[in-house]
Amino acid sequence: MTPLNLKPDEQVDSYFDSNLAKRYWFDRVFVSTAFICTLVGLVILALLLFDVCKDGLPRLSIDFLTHYPSRRAGQAGILSPLVGTIWLLVITALVAIPIGVGAGIFLEEFAASSLLAKVIEVNIGNLAAVPSIIYGLLALHVFVRLMNPITGGRSVLSGGLTLALLVLPIIIVATREALRAVPEGIRQAGYAIGTTRWQVVRDQVLPIAFPGILTGTILALSRAIGETAPLITIGALTFIAFLPPLVPLTEGLRSPFTALPIQIYNWVSRPQEAFQIAAAAGIIVLMAVLITMNATAVYLRNWLQRTRN
């Protein structure tokens, strides 16, 4: 595909610059620039991880994981934030997965190409651009204020519901994509032997789409546990020296809470260096959880692609 090296003559439009050496040189500069730009993100990522590990690794210990936050930086741990994050993760998953997957099934299998499906599609596109702090304001008004008798106000349940709303669009989109990838013939075969739509979905389509849905869901949940702003807006506390009780569960759900990103923010915003080191150690724990979740999702996706082919 090498361009022809024509000798310039009067026939050639004067606007056409056939100086190949210069053009090829410019081409190489362009590729190099593009390559360097690609590296920018990766270099910053490496610097970030290095900086956090350098500051935080020496601070990391079993004590750090099993102690409550403290006003003395040297003794501060992340027990209550870590447990709070796990509570949030479980509540978010229990609320967002059934609703998100159900909505995805409805839009793709029961109402595909209906007006409702189109309206919801546009709506989900809009929600993707809404800042997460706005979800926090919605939750402050609805979960904390209006539903106060049920949620207990600024509680871990309110937090979990907020994050569930936030990741719902992601789970719906992932479910729809996974369902769309299932060959139409499988559905037709099901209908041909007299099964209903739901039976086809339940017994044939869902099992095939399951790994794809799972991957999308894990990515959505990992996004949820890194969120800080909406939790601050609904009033997550930064200093909590107790864990929400598991029994009775209603009391646990309605108790005040903190979470890893909240605690990290609190420590970062303090002027003392010892707290900032604790923040770095907290970041390592948070990133370890996130990378584990992401790696699981990527592994599942690759495994899925391999078994399909």
């Binding site: 890194g226 800080t228 990103p261 990527v298």
Partner: peptide, 14 residues
Amino acid sequence: EVLAGVPTVVYGYF
């Protein structure tokens, strides 16, 4: 994707 998944509070620290 990892870069996209870094929580913003971590970027704030950095």
